[in-house]
Simulated assay, not measured.
Amino acid sequence: MARKSLIQREKKRQKLEQKYHLIRRSSKKELSNVPPLSDKRDEIYGKLQSLPRNSAPTRLRRRCFSTGRSRANYRDFGLSGYILREMVHACLLPGATRSSW
Results as ranks from 00 to 15, higher is better:
E86N: 13
G81L: 03
T67Y: 13
L60G: 09
R24F: 08
T97E: 14
P35T: 08
S38Y: 06
Q18E: 14
L93K: 10
I44R: 01
C64R: 05
Y45Q: 00
R24Y: 08
R75E: 12
D39S: 03
I44F: 00
S80T: 09
I83F: 04
V34D: 03
E17W: 11
L92H: 13
T67H: 14
S50H: 04
S55I: 08
D42V: 01
R62I: 13
N33V: 05
K19Y: 14
C91Y: 15
H89D: 12
G81R: 05
T67G: 12
G81N: 05
E86Y: 12
R75Y: 08
R63H: 15
N33E: 07
F77R: 11
P35V: 08
R69H: 10
S50D: 03
E43M: 00
R24W: 09
N73Q: 10
I44A: 00
S66C: 13
H89Q: 15
S50E: 03
L22C: 09
V34H: 03
N33I: 06
E17T: 13
S32Q: 05
S38A: 05
L79F: 10
E43P: 00
R71Q: 06
R61Y: 06
S50V: 02
P36D: 07
L92D: 12
Q49R: 04
R61W: 07
Y82A: 02
A96N: 08
L60N: 08
G68D: 12
R75K: 10
R53F: 11
Q18L: 10
L48K: 00
Y82I: 04
R41Y: 01
F77L: 11
S80F: 07
G68Q: 13
S38C: 05
D76Y: 11
L48I: 00
Q49L: 01
I83K: 07
E30N: 04
E43V: 00
K19N: 13
N33Y: 06
G78C: 10
R63S: 15
P57A: 11
H89V: 10
N73A: 04
R61A: 13
K40G: 00
R41P: 01
G81T: 03
N73H: 07
G78P: 06
L92C: 12
K29G: 05
L84W: 06
H21Y: 09
P57M: 09
F77A: 13
P36C: 04
